[in-house]
Structures are given as structure tokens and as C-alpha cells.
């Protein structure tokens, strides 16, 4: 399995760390309430299909990445810098 790091190019999966769903980018406000925080940290859509996930190029440039990937075929359709994605969310 390989990922195209925007900084480093196509690298083998073993250079990357996977954290989980990219919902983790949308950290709730302090007063968002129990349900919002439970959803943020625990609940997941967990689709058999396309997801957006957070990876880090741990053994390379250290960039955090948002990867759009199909969990059934493992086909990767996009790899973006997480900081770009987060900024666009603002």
C-alpha cells in the first residue's frame, strides 16, 4: 500500500501512521455538550466505502494528511495536507 505524500511523493505505507477518521479535525467547543463530544471521540460512521482519514508521514516529513480512501478496495483518491483542509474548514 502506498500513499502520495504532497511533500515527499509516493511512499510505502510503512512510513505512515494512521490515526482514524478525519472528524477529529472538527474539535467541538468546550460547551458543545456531551453528545457532541461523545460523537467526536467515539462514534463513527465507519463506512464500507469512501472515508476521509487522518494519517501522518511519521517516518518522513511529519506532515499530517487527510487521505480520501475506499475501505473496501483501498483505492486512494486524494491526499491533502491536513493543515490545508483545516484552514478551508474555517
Amino acid at each position: 500500500m502506498r500513499l502520495d505524500c504532497p511533500m515527499c511523493g509516493s511512499r510505502d505505507r510503512r512510513e505512515f501512521y494512521y490515526q482514524g477518521d478525519a472528524v477529529m479535525l472538527a474539535r467541538p467547543a468546550v460547551d458543545a455538550g456531551e453528545a457532541a463530544w461523545d460523537s467526536y471521540l467515539h462514534l463513527r460512521d465507519n463506512p464500507a466505502g469512501q472515508t476521509r482519514e487522518l494519517w501522518q508521514h511519521e517516518a518522513g516529513c511529519g506532515a499530517w494528511l487527510v487521505v480520501t480512501r475506499d475501505t473496501v478496495t483501498h483505492a486512494v483518491s486524494a491526499v491533502e495536507l491536513a493543515s490545508d483542509v483545516k484552514r478551508a474548514m474555517a
Partner: peptide, 13 residues
């Protein structure tokens, strides 16, 4: 393998 998957197969690393 550490990444979410329904593929029932893993990779080499």
C-alpha cells in the same frame, strides 16, 4: 494493519 478496512486482506508492512 492499523488502517480502517473491510477488504479482509492486509498488506506487507
Amino acid at each position: 494493519d492499523f488502517y480502517a478496512s473491510y477488504a479482509s486482506r492486509g498488506n506487507l508492512p
